[in-house]
Design a protein around this nucleic acid. Sequence first.
DNA 1: AAGAAATGCAACCGCGGCACC
DNA 2: GGGTGCCGCGGTTGCATTTCT
Length: 286
Amino acid sequence: MGRAPCCDKASVKRGPWSPEEDEQLRSYVQRHGIGGNWIALPQKAGLNRCGKSCRLRWLNYLRPNIKHGGYTEQEDQIIWSLYSSIGSRWSIIASKLPGRTDNDVKNYWNTKLKKKAMAAVAASAATGGAFAAPATPPPALSPAASASSSVTSSGGDVRFAAYPPQHHQGLTMRFDAPAPQRRQQHTELAPVPPAAAVAQLDATSGVWARQPAPASDAVAAALDDVFLPDLVGGGEQLFPYGDFFGGLQDRAALELSACYFPNMAEMWGAAAASDAKPQGLCNTLT
DNA sequence: AAGAAATGCAACCGCGGCACC
DNA sequence: GGGTGCCGCGGTTGCATTTCT
């Protein structure tokens, strides 16, 4: 007993969109909006397409101000940093990159950026670069986790220090990790150390510890640009760390990470205990 | 020049969340 | 409180294009 299909796949057109279909959808949405119902939209717009297909086409291609390709170094840094913290939550990552879609970011990561990351790690390993490279998730998630002192680029849960790896070694980046648990499994989400917070796994205690080392200037500037506007409201300086990422200190890291990179395991665990939605998540993440 | 392999990306698929009844 | 249907997400697929041999 599976879910009923959203549309009759045999009777709707599939595959690439023609310019005529694009124009039909674009003009309909511009005139009427999506009307809160993608399933009904194709019929109203006179399109022989599945509603989901229309939604995807609009969101990923026809929507105004969409950018394709031409990723900047700053965007690379943001993607790297966010991926290290929250994994493949492409919609969240894309929401921090104006004009980018989750699909586009995902494709960009899978086809280019991941390879770039692997190459950087391989190069660093070859030159004896020092990377924190735990082969398993942090102990808070996996009690059996053990620290590894070596870096491997041959697949699996490989982590490296940061973007660019040779410049700051505090951040932990999972570029080849298994996909994180889906949303409904928040209690099992890896409490990967916040990208902002510089963390290293203590091989003796098995505890992730924040380090006072600052992020590189480039990464700090990129992250400041992206996140601080959300934290500074209406001319009033609500968030006291104007150069937060550039001057990472424990308290600041904790405050921002609590907002953008909350410890999911703790939060959702507490939420499960109280049978309530977790509190404290930024709107941008929920 | 032609075929093979690699790459890039649009589109599809299936699932879970959530709102509504 | 349970059922239903839509939305949004992340993973995967398929195909066109580019590069290599």
